[in-house]
Simulated scan of single mutants.
Amino acid sequence: MQAVILAAGEGKRLRPLTHTMPKAMVPVANRPILEHIIRALEKNGIREIIVVVGYKKEHVIRHLNTLDIPVRVVVQERQLGTAHALACAAPLITGDFLLLPGDNYVDTASIARIMREKNAVLTWEHPHPSNFGVLVIRDGLVREVIEKPQDAPGFTVSTGIFSLDPSFLQYLDETEIPDAVNRMIRAGTPLKAVAAADWQDAVYPWDLLKLNAALLRDVRPERAGRSGPGVVIRGRVSIGKGTTIGPNTTILGPAIIGDDCDIGANCVITSETSVGARARVEPFTMIGQSVLLDDVSIGSHSRIVEAVVGTGSHLGDHATTFPTKTIFSIEREMIGAKFGAIIGDHICSAPFCIFRNCIVGNDVVIDDGKTIYGEVPDGAKLL
């Protein structure tokens, strides 16, 4: 069986993290979302995989070339919708296939369920269905997909993961996959609804925290680094090659720390935390329920909780993230969310800064002692 993964989109609602990389390449549990999908397919014996790339395609292609599984790449030169993206891959499709978005997580068991069905969609019960395609289902069959309705008729949504036969390709003159699916249903082809075992979508940047926690449940314990005296490691913890853990530091799993990191003395890293490669955490710092991307540095005596910190960012000594609930405007939608901070790439903050439920753009410079809240645009200087 073939699988087609659509990884051409930008992921505008995930900004500032997707200014420099496509959504499918955002690291969660220290691997791009796209790689987690490919591994789940591989575990189900699917090795004929086609990936459609577009926005920042070089990032995706470069990473795919590092994998130990062959992947065929198709380029969508202009982002003209998901149906067009699949049409770009149509010449390579030779039989029944799975269709998956490249920016959602799905577990191995869910893929096994839908593989057994012909013309089916994986479904999920979601508390906020209006962000997705809502399914109208009767007698186990999908009657209609209602894309992002203001008043959803139910809580069952499409995961965007389908098992299809090649006849579906005749409906791809539509802009988006849900429109093509509705045309197929109206033409008389039944579409089965199959409940997923586990599925996660990061619609907004703070959703990465929940997705990270879900993926860390399966982290493989590994001790490749060096630990100083008095270090306590409990639970499922993976420590990468070349990493040093300073004396009297405590790490509680599930957690993952990448290669060549320097974790200082007397630090605490709690569960549901991912630390990317070459990160530096200075002494007496606590990090919990957070995602630190590659090359991040956190100053001493800091407390970073419920935060995403982008590539190459530096937070000075005594930095604090403060989780509270705020309403944000994302793509002209008013969205309420509770988290500590979403911090973009290559920001630099001086000591004693407080990040209070904020979204900080890329390349921001922050003077000492500032309290940051709300949204800070790319390139801002808070002096």
Results as ranks from 00 to 15, higher is better:
residue 320 T to K: 13
residue 13 R to D: 10
residue 119 N to E: 11
residue 305 V to I: 14
residue 337 A to H: 02
residue 80 L to D: 10
residue 257 I to M: 06
residue 230 G to M: 09
residue 252 L to Y: 11
residue 365 V to T: 14
residue 6 L to Y: 03
residue 328 F to G: 07
residue 179 D to W: 08
residue 238 S to D: 08
residue 373 Y to A: 10
residue 47 R to H: 15
residue 321 T to N: 08
residue 264 G to R: 07
residue 367 D to S: 14
residue 283 P to F: 03
residue 24 A to G: 04
residue 255 A to R: 08
residue 44 N to P: 06
residue 189 T to Y: 09
residue 152 A to H: 00
residue 168 F to V: 02
residue 338 K to E: 11
residue 360 V to H: 00
residue 163 S to M: 09
residue 305 V to S: 08
residue 287 I to R: 06
residue 55 Y to I: 01
residue 233 I to T: 10
residue 12 K to D: 07
residue 291 V to F: 01
residue 122 L to S: 05
residue 133 G to D: 01
residue 229 P to D: 15
residue 48 E to D: 15
residue 171 Y to P: 01
residue 241 K to F: 08
residue 262 D to C: 09
residue 30 N to S: 13
residue 122 L to R: 03
residue 67 L to M: 13
residue 1 M to A: 12
residue 99 L to E: 03
residue 333 E to G: 01
residue 129 P to V: 01
residue 368 D to M: 13
residue 179 D to M: 11
residue 193 A to H: 02
residue 62 R to Y: 04
residue 284 F to Y: 14
residue 194 V to C: 02
residue 131 N to Y: 15
residue 57 K to A: 11
residue 163 S to T: 06
residue 381 K to Q: 11
residue 31 R to Q: 15
residue 366 I to W: 00
residue 310 G to A: 09
residue 286 M to Q: 14
residue 182 N to L: 05
residue 17 L to I: 10
residue 30 N to T: 03
residue 234 R to D: 10
residue 29 A to L: 06
residue 48 E to N: 15
residue 103 D to N: 10
residue 89 A to L: 07
residue 113 R to S: 12
residue 130 S to T: 07
residue 90 A to R: 09
residue 151 D to N: 13
residue 342 I to S: 05
residue 360 V to Q: 01
residue 213 A to R: 15
residue 214 A to M: 10
residue 244 T to A: 13
residue 53 V to K: 07
residue 301 H to C: 09
residue 261 C to A: 06
residue 238 S to R: 11
residue 300 S to N: 11
residue 268 V to Q: 12
residue 344 G to S: 05
residue 111 I to T: 08
residue 40 A to Y: 02
residue 146 I to L: 14
residue 147 E to M: 10
residue 343 I to Q: 01
residue 49 I to A: 06
residue 80 L to R: 12
residue 140 G to H: 06
residue 349 S to Y: 00
residue 201 D to C: 11
residue 221 P to V: 03
residue 376 V to A: 03
residue 133 G to A: 08
residue 49 I to R: 05
residue 299 G to I: 04
residue 170 Q to D: 12
residue 217 R to P: 00
residue 5 I to V: 12
residue 193 A to P: 01
residue 202 A to Q: 07
residue 14 L to I: 12
residue 355 F to Y: 13
residue 270 T to I: 12
residue 244 T to L: 14
residue 356 R to M: 08
residue 181 V to C: 05
residue 226 R to K: 14
residue 95 G to Y: 01
residue 314 H to M: 12
residue 106 V to N: 03
residue 162 F to A: 01
residue 245 I to E: 05
residue 236 R to C: 04
residue 39 R to V: 12
residue 368 D to T: 13
residue 199 W to L: 02
residue 77 E to L: 04
residue 41 L to T: 05
residue 361 G to Q: 04
residue 10 E to M: 12
